[in-house]
């Protein structure tokens, strides 16, 4: 004798049903699920971004060619020029909005779940620094991304003169010690964020199998080291004159 859990609202509205993802998003579990998916998008992005930037080491020509290719070459002529890039940008933008808005909403929910915090000092056993600071590492990365775009994509705050190549802009920017330092800090924050995030997304997505579970942490560490290691090398290389 199943006591059916009622779906009163759905039944009443009949065919006008909210899309699955929206419906999913209403719950905290669903938000986490979408944060994981958008997280994966970002993982792909930061990895590709880092790999592409390795071209810095091949000199200005190769690097500028790569930048040009991104704008024009991706899937053209199937898509119009810059089409793919804009599409990717759109995906990234949507992911960003989902990831950030969900994070803010969930953080608020969690605050409400413990309005009065413990008066005595907590002694954490499993909750590591990375997992407890996601909202802050995330914020740092977000602020950095804004600056990074203003700097290199839109060029508003870039120290290089107008009409400089992408390569020159990068070098000019990283030559400023403060910018290089900000970049380093932001990437360390990214590393901390990835260290927990990459592991965590398996949980949020419910990818769990006792035989493979121990690989999740290894993957998170490996991925973080590769991406952050690569990223950190660029400003350092500029600062020490390896790239100029």
């Amino acid at each position: 004798m199943a006591t059916k859990v009622s779906h009163g609202d759905d039944a009443a509205t009949g065919s006008r049903r909210t899309p699955f993802l929206v419906e999913l998003y209403r719950s905290a579990l669903g938000k986490k699920y979408l944060m994981a998916i958008s997280g994966i998008v970002f993982m792909g992005y930061v990895l590709a971004h880092m790999l592409g930037n390795l071209k810095l080491y091949q000199g200005p020509e190769e690097f500028n060619k790569y930048a040009e290719f991104l704008r024009e070459g991706l899937l053209t002529p199937i898509l119009p020029e810059s089409g793919m890039l804009n599409l990717l940008r759109l995906v990234l933008l949507v992911s960003l909005v989902v990831h950030v808005v969900a994070a803010v909403q969930l953080t608020r929910m969690n605050k409400q779940a413990r309005p009065e915090s413990y008066r005595s000092k907590r002694d954490y056993v499993a909750a590591d620094f990375a997992s407890r600071t996601m909202i802050w590492t995330g914020t740092i990365v977000l602020l950095f991304v804004a600056y990074h775009l203003a700097d290199l994509t839109w060029g508003w705050v870039n120290p290089a003169e107008a009409g400089a190549t992408v390569y020159d802009k990068v070098v000019a920017s990283f030559s400023v010690p403060a910018v290089a330092a900000f970049y380093l800090v932001a990437n360390l924050a990214l590393g901390v964020h990835l260290y927990h995030g990459v592991w965590s997304l398996f949980q949020s997505l419910g990818i769990n199998n006792r035989r493979f579970n121990h690989w999740r942490r290894a993957l998170a560490v490996g991925f973080t080291v590769v991406v952050v290691g690569g990223n950190l090398s660029f400003p350092i290389a500029v600062q020490v004159g390896l790239i100029s």
């Binding site: 905290a28 929910m109 969690n110 499993a126 997992s131 949980q203 949020s204 769990n208």
Partner: peptide, 24 residues
Amino acid sequence: GSCTNMGECEAACPKGISIDFIAM
């Protein structure tokens, strides 16, 4: 509140219930 997969619950659980169940 909502889970951010910190695993502190599993560590505190007197019965050692695994967070694998959360993934399930």
